[in-house]
Amino acid sequence: MSEIKKFMYVNRKAPYGTIYAWEALEVILIGAAFEQDVSLAFMDDGVYQLTKGQDTTGIGMKNFSPTYSALGDYEITKIYVDKESLEERGLSLDDLQHLVWEDEDEDWAEKDSIRLVSRTELADVLAEQDVLFNF
């Protein structure tokens, strides 16, 4: 498997209520071992997956949101967030976790993983991909 493909995982659903978000994250973590050119997109209710301060004690489910902060360690450094989806829900970048990765080419400088993009820009990124996983 020498060919490297552009993989994008598109996350469109709220973190709880259905299992899609959690099982998508499981694919993302396993997929990281395959050394493809991976990026993630969060749009529609999917933007709620990245919000900080999630508390699931009232619904008896595991709060898996801390896992997103480990994505940098899996060399997943491109996380696109649809700006309009945030705005439609009264959210801004400040409501999301601060996700970072360390750039080994620049003495492990810490860099932001989240790229806030307009819907039009996100459409262009989607069009560049070889494989779209849709959750």
Partner: peptide
């Protein structure tokens, strides 16, 4: 991994 490999 079978899903990811399938996609590749």
């Amino acid at each position: 991994g079978q899903l990811v490999e399938g996609a590749i």
